[in-house]
């Protein structure tokens, strides 16, 4: 009985001492945190994608609250509503974000593109790219090991059996993480209301590109001739669409009609329920 009382007393005293020390430390060493930072962070989507240019959502919240020069509309995944909320909290105003979506600029599926060797190494595009630029004959094409899929913070990408990633337009926030991890630079962000898309990234000359892949852009310029608004130029053997002109001026695009390899295609809007797909035409059907 005596021992039990003794234990009790020791515990109570120890508890009291530590309690007092902690209470004192809490007051003495308190770090002033602007409560606004946490409010802003709560608004952000927490994908930690880094599209804003900061190391994660918390870092951006700190920066936007503390630094007057950081705009409130940098959160690409959050788009309009988040920009508005952050603006309201921080008292800043900035123009709305132009919504974007990831676009796979390659239609070189396993059926379309030739392989130059059989790859048995590490299943990662950046690793495969170190070995003579990957297993595809076309040195610009998608390697299909899904580095973008593994790095997408929003689960918007899936690898299809044909060896090309598919972008889910409902989940893609346009953060651009995939764009930065792709070693072949195949993924580009497209304005969400783009009308046409070029599904090729090959800068090879026409004959070489054709030999390597049956879906390659040959740089023949037929789309350029058929565009009535001069929105297409041929750069390094590849058709490049100026989306500013294309979206603003063209109602009825005909550029893709004559394309011999279907490398440029119309973006089919009603393929997706949200009606917002700047898409992966050609990649989906296979």
């Amino acid at each position: 009985m005596e021992t039990a009382l003794m234990v009790l007393a020791v515990m109570v005293i120890t508890g009291l001492v530590f309690g007092i020390v902690l209470a004192y430390a809490n007051k003495k060493f308190a770090v002033e945190v602007n409560p606004l930072i946490h409010l802003v962070e709560d608004v952000l989507p927490k994908g930690q994608c880094g599209a804003c240019g900061f190391a994660g959502c918390m870092a951006y919240a700190e920066a936007v609250v503390l630094d007057a020069n950081v705009a409130p509309n940098l959160c690409v995944p959050g788009k309009g509503p988040v920009a508005e909320a952050v603006g309201k909290l921080t008292g800043k105003s900035a123009p709305a974000i132009e919504p974007r979506i990831a676009h796979i600029r390659c239609a070189g599926s396993v059926e379309n593109a030739k392989a130059k060797y059989q790859y048995v190494g590490v299943q990662d595009c950046a690793a495969a790219n170190l070995l003579q630029g990957g297993q595809k004959s076309c040195q610009y094409g998608c390697l299909g090991f899904g580095t973008c899929v593994n790095n997408c913070p929003f689960g918007a990408l899936t690898m299809q059996p044909n060896g090309l990633p598919y972008v889910d337009p409902e989940k893609c926030t346009g953060c651009g993480k995939c764009e930065t991890v792709c070693p072949k630079n195949v993924i580009k962000m497209l304005p969400i209301d783009a009308k046409v898309s070029v599904n090729c990234n090959s800068k090879d000359r026409g004959a070489v590109a054709k030999k390597n892949c049956s879906a390659a852009c040959l740089g023949c310029g037929l789309c350029k001739k058929n565009c009535s608004h001069d929105a297409i130029i041929i750069e390094n053997g590849l058709a490049v669409v100026d989306y500013k002109i294309c979206i603003a001026e063209c109602d009825n695009p005909t550029c893709f009609a004559k394309c011999p390899t279907k490398a440029i295609e119309a973006v089919v809007k009603d393929r997706y329920p949200m009606g917002s797909a700047a898409n992966v035409a050609g990649n989906v059907a296979m």
Partner: peptide, 13 residues
């Protein structure tokens, strides 16, 4: 395991 490839990859990164 493709140990050397992982190492080369890490070196490249």
């Amino acid at each position: 395991r493709r140990i050397v490839q992982y190492i080369r990859y890490a070196k490249a990164q």
